Simulated scan of single mutants.
Amino acid sequence: MSRASCVLSVSCSGLLIASSLFIFGPFDIYLANINEYSLPLEALLINLLGFFVLCLGVSICAAIVVPSALRSVFISFVFVIAIAVYLQGNMLFISYGHLDGTDIDFTKFTARNWIELPVWAGLILAGIVFHKKVSQQATFISIVIILIVSASCIVRYIERSDEFNAKLPLSDAGVDNTLFELSPTFNVIHILLDQLQSDVAFNILADKSFQRDVDDFVFYKENIGAFPVTQFSLPALLSGQAYDNTSPMREFIDNAMENDAYYKELHRQGYAIDLLTQKNFLPSNFCKDGRVICEDSISPLDSSLADSKRVAYKLADYSLFRYALI
């Protein structure tokens, strides 16, 4: 077998592995938890491109240097690994429940080892024993699987395009100047200092240079968020409802903010309400019904990009966990 044929076959199998780990896997996880993400899918996947290229590049480099006598065996080996990875992430994976950072009791899932290990071992053994026949079909089968899964992803993306299109783009767009128009008679300005310790804020505001600017403000230093993340703390603060994980996140936010938020009473009393925050912190239709003016918070582009990398790497971590043989 020529080196070019070996590189082609291994490239197709390597492409299946890289796509499973860094495209198809993250896509499935994102789609299943789409309400948990505020950033668009493409902004996350672009951050995984380097890992995708690295995975594919390693397989191609190995195919280039493998001795000619072992090319057929190597092609078959990489192919069966690609098949095993695909099966692991799509047919053999198991649900561990809500991944909330707590330790997983793997002793409850020991029975799965009696299925996964024989499947992996059987595929590898069959690939080595029948390497001549397997290596001849590796390229075709890899391409077929990639095309089928890609088509499936495209169809599912189109079916839920409204949800995908609703995600916030990466931008540093400012806000409408009308947001800063105040009433000549009476105004209430409520500022939440997210991720800023109260004692630090107190020391800053105690500076004499700030006294005139904050003279009419009341600083509540004895406070604590209901949750370590903003998205759940806001409903608790504005509505008094605490998230207990009995309903999907988006459903909880919609119900709490639509039905119990205190600003509804302010609206009934004739107040014009402006909210400056990320729109994914608010109910789905909140900014479309004319009750309030909503603006995305002002943040530098670099901050948004850094956040997209963090979320993307976490998404890749979940994908690798899903495809791993544990």
Rank of each mutant, 00 (worst) to 15 (best):
Q197A: 09
S198N: 12
D199I: 03
D199W: 04
V200P: 00
V200K: 05
V200F: 11
A201V: 11
A201S: 13
F202S: 10
F202G: 05
N203V: 00
I204W: 00
I204P: 00
I204G: 01
L205G: 02
L205M: 15
A206S: 15
D207Y: 04
K208V: 08
F210A: 03
F210S: 03
F210P: 00
Q211E: 12
Q211N: 02
Q211I: 00
D213T: 10
D213V: 07
D213Y: 14
D213A: 14
V214C: 03
V214L: 11
D215Y: 07
D215T: 03
D215R: 11
D215C: 01
D215F: 08
D215G: 05
D216Y: 13
F217S: 08
F217Q: 07
V218H: 12
V218F: 10
F219T: 06
F219P: 05
Y220G: 01
Y220T: 06
E222G: 01
E222C: 01
N223G: 07
N223E: 12
N223F: 14
N223S: 13
I224L: 08
A226K: 06
F227M: 07
P228C: 03
P228D: 15
P228L: 14
T230F: 07
T230S: 15
T230Y: 10
T230M: 10
T230W: 11
T230N: 10
Q231D: 13
Q231T: 13
F232Y: 13
F232C: 02
F232G: 00
F232L: 14
F232A: 06
F232Q: 05
S233K: 04
L234N: 02
P235N: 12
P235M: 08
A236I: 01
A236K: 02
A236L: 01
L237A: 09
L237D: 00
L237V: 02
L238H: 07
L238S: 01
L238I: 02
S239W: 02
S239K: 04
G240F: 07
G240N: 07
Q241E: 13
A242M: 06
Y243D: 01
Y243A: 00
D244T: 12
D244Q: 08
N245K: 10
N245F: 08
N245D: 11
S247K: 09
S247M: 14
S247L: 06
S247V: 14
S247E: 15
P248N: 06
P248T: 04
P248C: 08
P248A: 11
M249K: 11
M249P: 01
M249H: 09
R250K: 12
R250I: 10
E251H: 06
F252E: 02
F252T: 06
F252R: 05
F252M: 05
I253L: 13
D254P: 07
D254E: 14
D254N: 15
N255H: 09
A256Y: 09
M257Q: 14
